[in-house]
Design a protein around this nucleic acid. Sequence first.
RNA 1: CGGAGCGUAGUUCAGAUGGUUUAGAACGUGCGCUUUGGGAGCGCAAGGUCGUGGGUUCAAGUCCCACCGCUCCGACCA
Length: 415
Amino acid sequence: MLYSRLFGRPKKEAKKFESISHQLLTQGGFIDQVSSGIFNYLPLGKIVLTKIENIIREEMNNIGAQEVLMPALHPSSLWEKTDRWTSVDVLFKVKSQWGGEYALAPTHEETITPLAKKFIKSYRDLPLALYQITLKYRDEKRPKSGILRGREFGMKDLYSFHHDKKDLENFYQKVIQAYLKIFRRCGLTSVKITEASGGSFTKKFSHEFNVITPSGEVDLIYCDKESCSFAQNEEISQSKTICPRCQNPLKKEKAIEIGNIFDLGTRFSEAFDLKFVDQDGKEKFPIMGCYGIGTTRLMGAIVEVHHDDKGIIWPETVSPYRAIIVGLDLKEKPVRDRVFLVYEKLQNLGVEALLDDREEISPGEKFYDADLIGVPVRMVISQKTKDKIEIKGRTEEKVKLVSLDQLVNHFSFIK
RNA sequence: CGGAGCGUAGUUCAGAUGGUUUAGAACGUGCGCUUUGGGAGCGCAAGGUCGUGGGUUCAAGUCCCACCGCUCCGACCA
């Protein structure tokens, strides 16, 4: 991508926001606020989001889940059936001009269950796991911190159906492992799993995935001993100070919730009269599980964790580009030709690169922008670098001079 | 939903006890020239329903009322 053609570039000055991710993503040209809690995703932001989504897709497919797409517009009757039309106070409701009321879906139990009912007849149809990645709508009283808490936000939601509780628990554990892998692949290593209080409608189990970061909004109590994984939300921890599992002193930190999983029991299968005939010939309600990851929130959380005073530091896996080429002295034709040669070489290798081809911009300004955008590798080509290419990691201080061959080898190797 | 703050140019803000009449500055933006290794310089230019509506007044960006919007704290978060 040529920088000069990029829509939504970094801004030297931008509106100031309290939340770091809100500030950096806005200034860096990743997102643009439409209204409180509602955002446009610009090309840079959309690429990052897509990369996050694709990591999630891979891991969901790995555990045998199949991707579907369900509507955002839900007839009110579905929500009346589960008694949530009036009890969910964040529900957006819209009226059709021809009559009829609809919910803008904040979650999809109300459509996945009737959908599954059309196909699940026998125990042979189970287990079943379906997921989707869509925008969700919640009429939050107070949206905050940019994309960390919006009224419209991206979410991956997975629903599973099982013939018995044991089968659900089995799958539930697989999802936990898949989630940890997803977060690790997105560059988030300090993710704690907490036993949460669960939904108001279920006495079953429920777990939350929290990233430790000072800008988090929930207080987390956890044990940082390697062998112990104890963690709880402060609201349900009753101010414990010693780990109940290993007697280690507990730590307390702020965290952002980026995922949660629930055992739904038969609440929804009963509400929609979804039954299957089991091996014993009897009709039963499938046990359901639901599993969410906030994709847009995850993007914000990554920035909260990975940044410095110069800008964002994207993990390679979700960075909009793998490298940025800063071309200097571009009015000198030999330099310009060389810059484009390197750019094309990388393109041919399948290395997505952003080429700062702006002629009138001073070197300093280009360096500031490159740091702000936060791609992992920066290359500089100028009169000064002659037949070499200057290369530097986003968090490194020192630059290295390499030849084009070395560069090609480098990227071929790690590819 | 309770509380606080703020709405004047893209951004940050000045103008605030009503009255220099044509609402300013800096930065940013566009164009031209000059410049090119950590946000360069000069020149020119564009850019505003002063959040919206009502009221008071000879006169409102400025005072009063209502509404809307944004940010932050709290509660809430199926």
